[in-house]
Simulated scan of single mutants.
Amino acid sequence: MHANLYALGAIALWASIASLGLALTHVPPFLLTGIALIIGSLPAWPFVLRDPSQWRVPLRTLALGVYGLFAFHFLLFVALRNAPPVQANLVNYLWPLFIVLLSPVVLPGVVLRVPHVLAALLGFAGAAIAIAGGRGLDGTLAWGYAPALASALVWATYSLMTRRVAAFPTTAIGLFGLVSGVLSLLCHALLEPATSLSTRDWALLAVLGLGPLGASFFLWDRALKRGDARQIGVLSYITPVASTALLTVVSDQPFSGSIALATVLIVGAAILGMRAR
Rank of each mutant, 00 (worst) to 15 (best):
M1K: 12
A3I: 01
N4A: 14
L5N: 07
G9R: 05
A10M: 11
A10Y: 02
A12W: 02
L13P: 05
L20M: 04
L24S: 10
L24N: 07
V27W: 03
F30S: 15
L37C: 05
G40I: 04
L42S: 08
P46V: 06
P46S: 06
V48D: 06
L49G: 02
L49D: 06
R50H: 04
P52C: 00
Q54L: 11
T61N: 06
L62I: 10
L62W: 08
A63C: 12
L64I: 06
H73F: 04
L75W: 00
L76D: 10
V78N: 03
R81T: 15
P85Y: 01
V91W: 05
V91I: 15
N92F: 07
N92H: 13
Y93R: 02
S103N: 03
P104V: 03
P104I: 04
V105A: 10
V106T: 11
V106N: 09
L107P: 01
V111S: 14
V111F: 11
H116W: 05
A119Y: 00
A120E: 09
L122Q: 03
G123T: 13
G123R: 00
F124Q: 04
F124I: 12
A127C: 06
A128M: 14
I131Y: 05
I131M: 12
I131F: 07
R135A: 15
G136P: 10
G139K: 09
T140I: 10
G144C: 12
G144D: 11
A146W: 08
A148Y: 00
A148S: 12
A148E: 08
S151H: 05
S151W: 02
A152R: 05
A152H: 02
A156F: 02
A156R: 03
S159C: 06
L160N: 13
M161H: 11
M161Y: 15
V165A: 04
F168M: 11
F168V: 14
T171H: 07
A172S: 14
I173H: 07
F176T: 09
G177N: 14
L178Q: 10
S180C: 08
S180H: 03
S180M: 00
S184E: 12
L186S: 11
C187E: 08
H188Q: 11
L191K: 10
L191A: 14
E192S: 13
P193R: 14
P193D: 11
T195P: 09
S196A: 15
S196C: 01
T199P: 01
R200T: 15
A203V: 14
A203L: 15
L205G: 09
L205N: 05
A206N: 07
G209I: 01
L210R: 03
P212C: 00
G214K: 02
G214S: 02
F217Y: 15
D221P: 04
R226H: 12
R226Y: 00
R230H: 07
Q231N: 10
V234K: 00
V234D: 05
Y237L: 09
Y237K: 03
S251P: 02
F255R: 07
S258M: 13
I259Q: 07
A260H: 07
L261P: 06
V264A: 15
L272D: 10
